[in-house]
Design a protein around this nucleic acid. Structure first.
Lengths: 185, 185
DNA sequence: CGATACATGTAACCGGTTACATGATTTT
DNA sequence: AAAATCATGTAACCGGTTACATGTATCG
């Protein structure tokens, strides 16, 4: 499942959405990391409908401005759930971090608070492990010239370290929110 | 120019490379963020050659295991230089950060130390400006539920902030290296 | 009345992924 | 002799980007 499909499925899981709604969501929130072009969204919706994960119904059928609203099917919810709960791997951390963040954004509502916390811990663990890997690589290239490469590597390191720190912190926050339910509700 | 083409061009700018060399470089360094599949690299090399940016010559022509090595043309060096010096925009920061980091990795050797420093400063400025934008967005969503979304946003914030910090720090480092040339050479 | 927002789509293009294909050379 | 490495490619597929097309409704 592509990142875009996952984003669409996740948004629809929060309630029925039209293609236009989705475009707006992508355009006006920092979710805009994901495509907002109609040429991507409408075909993606069609594909999701073909595979039975969403079902579209036309609202205002008889008016001159109809609007097709998509809702998650049971099958779709199941697919979303199983995608979100897929174990995290090294490759995900390296090549699909945006996917991992997207999964986090939805996992709490779809799979429950505990799953969100477990997910963050797994994410932290895997990210920290990759940080160690990068440090090992850095140790291999010490000294010997290539200052630009070294600095670029340093960025990767700093960036992944920030993600790991965030994951640990966010996990603690969710645990706190769990212990003190509706504290600031 | 796609990220892959840029990576290839940058590597070739350091010296002639074969397709296999490039695959190895992508597979064994943290540059592996970029594709290492032959199905991407060989066609990309062909395209670069067609547009005159690299020229391939067959080594060991008469042996049973020939090897085609590509070198940068003058035109290629010019294209690389102008790509690297392209001004940074908001969209680059949001959608093409990996491209920006790749550009940094090569800009020093291709365009000179001063350009690398200027590039880092511009990168820091643009990243900081996006961080401010995200903070503004966060301020808009305060309180009101959506803890997962808030945390996801927090990650973006932390991640971009780390990049900005890194850029400032790296710029200082390059300036220092400039003032104390060959200090630890 | 003009601009903006609502609303959905198509078509050409590009390029990356996956999987397959081939075979020589070197190392164990 | 088997396994790993060297070395280059092709073909089918997928899906995102860009640009285009169409028309209504609402607001100032």
């Amino acid at each position: 499942m592509s990142t875009l499909s996952l984003a669409i499925l996740g948004l629809i899981s929060q309630g029925p959405r039209s293609g236009y709604d989705l475009r707006k969501a992508f355009a006006t929130t920092p979710m805009g990391h994901f495509s907002m072009s109609p040429g991507a969204i409408y075909p993606a919706l069609k594909r999701l409908e073909e595979s039975g994960l969403v079902r579209g119904t036309v609202e205002r059928k008889r008016t001159l401005r109809p609007r097709e609203v998509y809702a998650l099917t049971e099958e779709g919810r199941e697919a979303l759930r199983s995608t979100l709960l897929q174990p995290i791997g090294r490759d995900d951390v390296i090549w699909r971090m945006d996917n991992l963040m997207l999964r986090f954004a939805f996992i709490g509502d779809v799979c429950g608070h505990e799953q969100a916390i477990a997910y963050l811990k797994a994410l932290a663990t895997h990210t920290e492990s990759y940080v160690r890997e990068l440090k090992g690589f850095r140790a291999m290239v010490v000294g010997r010239g290539a200052i630009y490469g070294r600095l670029a590597l340093q960025h990767g390191l700093a960036s992944y370290a920030a993600t790991a720190r965030w994951a640990r912190h966010a996990a603690k926050e969710l645990e706190k929110a769990h212990r003190e339910p509706a504290a600031h509700q």
